[in-house]
Design a protein around this nucleic acid. Structure first.
Length: 583
RNA sequence: GCGCUUGUAGCUCAGCUGGAUAGAGUGUCGCCCUCCGAAGGCGAAGGUCGUGAGUUCGAAUCUCGCCAAGCGCACCA
């Protein structure tokens, strides 16, 4: 439960009843919710703060401080509120009673790592498409960010009550696939002992295709040796795609990512989806035959020959220029099947679509938004989350990556080197759309400037305290904290409870802006509070979590420790990171 | 030339979708272990929030101009 939302609702109810009593003038109902209840910037102001008087006083034809006077008295009567103060230009700052915080801790303990879940998503279906790397080889580090971000965003939206489908689009149709299959064929011949020259320009030279070639030899022997391209191509396409997807799925598994749906471009196209798109757009009068102007970035010395093609009037839906659906030779551009795919999602019941892409696909956004609007009559919306690139370095030395130079690092190499948990958490320490520095050496450092470590360390340390307490009480912690008297907790300890109690709000806020990275900062703060508390016990033995001379206080403190572990676990769960029991 | 993203402490970055005195880490300086995990804690110093205007009770946050960086701008996906 989000305690801020709860208090806001209570204040709204209060306003309504005071309007009834005639304290305030009647105003439109929807205005009554246009204020906020938030934690104050400075904790010394109180626990919760509202701008309700600033926002609404003028509507009631009152001055903010006048309205504040009136509300103060009413709020003081709330059972959980200890005191109310006016501040600034008309803020109301409230302090909650200690029992209130004790109740929050009880709830955290009851809910475990489920704490922070909510229903604001209302079980709405959301389709999140991410990764969707072409099945031409294993995932490389360039896919890492999108894959992890997409997965974490999915978990985050699930946490707040959306019905999330993680989806991967397999580009298994088109010219690239034929090139891929031809490359495999060369490797097949090679595996049969034939001498092949260098893989020709335009084909795929990747080593991993050798395995596919060898596999086909193993299964089919010389069956395809003298086959014509026409004969071998369909099988080699299918086989190679299948094997490449196996590699990709292995990589994903290593990263802790599990997709719900893999959609095949080929299958969707074969179902007539592309023709359907043409028909819908044509029927709406959004298609014409014509020529497009030369691209804006064209340098004057480059050639540009206009062709007559079939074009979608995407400018009617906010795009910069109209986009071609069919080339001059009548074949479809990549764009048309893609529209068909988005329509397919809509037909499967998704009205909320999210696509996670690299920033280099930014040009794709406007046209696809336009297309989705057109083809679903505005009933579905598609949001794009563009991830900026990662600059990889090793001890400060930038790593150059290129396929040609063969220095490209595979995603699996990254995962094996740095570890799944560290990689995932570290990706969540930056906003998706800002550039990320990823130093393969620094992310493994075990110090507090590494948030991954710092948060895990707090959890491991807490686990160690729990273990020690369990030895002391000779029972499981869950048992002996049952009769803990949480009112015994001191001010510093309550401060941590207060932070933990804002967790549901943090999750909701992060979810509402699709920014899971915010949670990493919150977890860092929780860890920091915990480490501080710990250190109080260094100089003052009575402040240790386990005070053998004070059994009751020890129980209450261990309850707090477990509560903190729950919140860290709840957050790490969203990130797909396993909380460390020891390090 | 146009579009998108970004610009906050020396460095790396947060900043709660317009709120109160702009925050962390790192680096620099000072302090705290006869051990519940010092892999940590406490404190000092450090900012004209790129820049110029505008919107209003109130702007790092919204609008516009300018400057700078990254990415993109074909019938390639």
């Amino acid at each position: 439960m989000n305690i801020f939302t709860k208090l806001k609702e209570d204040i709204e109810d209060l306003l309504k009843s005071e309007i009834k009593k005639g304290t305030f003038e009647a105003i439109e109902e929807d205005l009554l919710s246009r204020f906020s209840v938030e934690p104050p910037r400075d904790a010394s102001f109180g626990d919760m703060s509202t701008n309700v008087c600033l926002v609404l006083a003028s509507r009631f034809h009152k001055k903010p401080f006048e309205m504040a006077e009136i509300l103060m008295e009413k709020l003081k009567a709330f059972p959980d509120i200890e005191s109310v103060e006016k501040a600034g230009a008309g803020f109301l700052n409230m302090r909650m009673k200690p029992q209130f915080w004790a109740k929050q801790l009880e709830e955290i303990l009851k809910e475990g790592s489920a704490y922070g879940e909510s229903f604001i998503g209302n079980n709405e279906k959301v389709n999140i498409e991410f990764t969707s790397a072409n099945p031409t080889g294993p995932l490389h580090v360039g896919h890492a960010r999108g894959a992890i971000f997409g997965d974490c965003l999915s978990s985050l939206l699930q946490k707040v009550g959306y019905d999330v489908t993680r989806e991967y689009y397999i580009n298994d149709a088109g010219a690239q696939v034929a090139k891929l299959a031809k490359s495999t064929y060369l490797r097949y011949l090679e595996a049969l002992g034939e001498k092949i020259d260098e893989i020709p320009e335009g084909l795929y030279p990747g080593e991993y295709l050798k395995d596919v070639g060898a596999l086909i030899v193993q299964e089919d022997g010389e069956k395809w040796k003298n086959a014509s391209e026409e004969e071998y191509l369909p099988y080699f396409k299918k086989k190679t795609i299948h094997e490449m997807m196996r590699l990709i799925k292995t990589d994903l598994e290593l990263a802790g990512i599990k997709f719900d749906v893999f959609s095949s471009e080929k299958k969707i196209a074969e179902s007539g989806q592309v023709d359907k798109v043409m028909k819908i757009l044509t029927d709406k009068g959004l298609v014409y035959e014509g020529e497009l102007p030369p691209p804006k970035g064209l340098k004057s010395d480059e050639d540009w020959e206009p062709h007559k093609m079939t074009i979608f009037k995407s400018t009617e839906f906010g795009d910069e220029v109209d986009r071609p659906l069919k080339r001059a030779d009548g074949s479809y551009t990549y764009f048309t099947p893609d529209i068909g795919y988005q329509l397919n999602k809509y037909e499967r019941g998704f009205k909320k679509l999210i696509m996670v892409l690299g920033a280099d696909h930014a040009g794709y956004v406007a046209r696809m938004k336009a297309a989705v609007k057109a083809v679903t009559e505005g009933k579905a919306s598609i949001d794009f989350e563009l991830g900026q690139m990662i600059n990889f370095s090793e001890n400060g030395v930038p790593m150059k990556m290129s396929k040609r130079a063969g220095t490209l690092v595979w995603f699996r190499d990254l995962l094996n080197d740095v570890g799944k948990d560290v990689t995932r958490f570290y990706m969540m320490t930056r906003k998706n759309d800002s550039q990320l520095e990823f130093d393969l050496v620094k992310v493994k450092e075990q110090s507090k400037d590494n948030p991954v470590f710092y948060v895990q360390y707090a959890h491991a340390r807490a686990a160690s305290v729990r273990k020690k307490a369990e030895n002391f009480f000779n029972t499981k912690a869950d048992e002996f904290i049952k009769d803990a008297d949480l009112s015994l907790l001191g001010e510093e300890e309550i401060a941590l409870v207060k932070r933990l109690a804002t967790w549901p709000r943090q999750v909701e806020m992060a979810a509402s802006v699709y920014e899971p990275h915010r949670l990493s900062y919150f977890l860092y703060d929780v860890a920091s509070d915990f480490h501080s508390l710990w250190n109080l016990g260094r100089t003052d033995e009575t402040k240790r979590f386990i005070d053998e001379g004070n059994v009751d206080l020890t129980k209450a403190r261990i309850a707090l420790v477990l509560g903190m572990m729950n919140v860290i676990a709840s957050g790490l769960q969203i990130f797909g990171v396993t909380p460390a029991e020891e390090m």
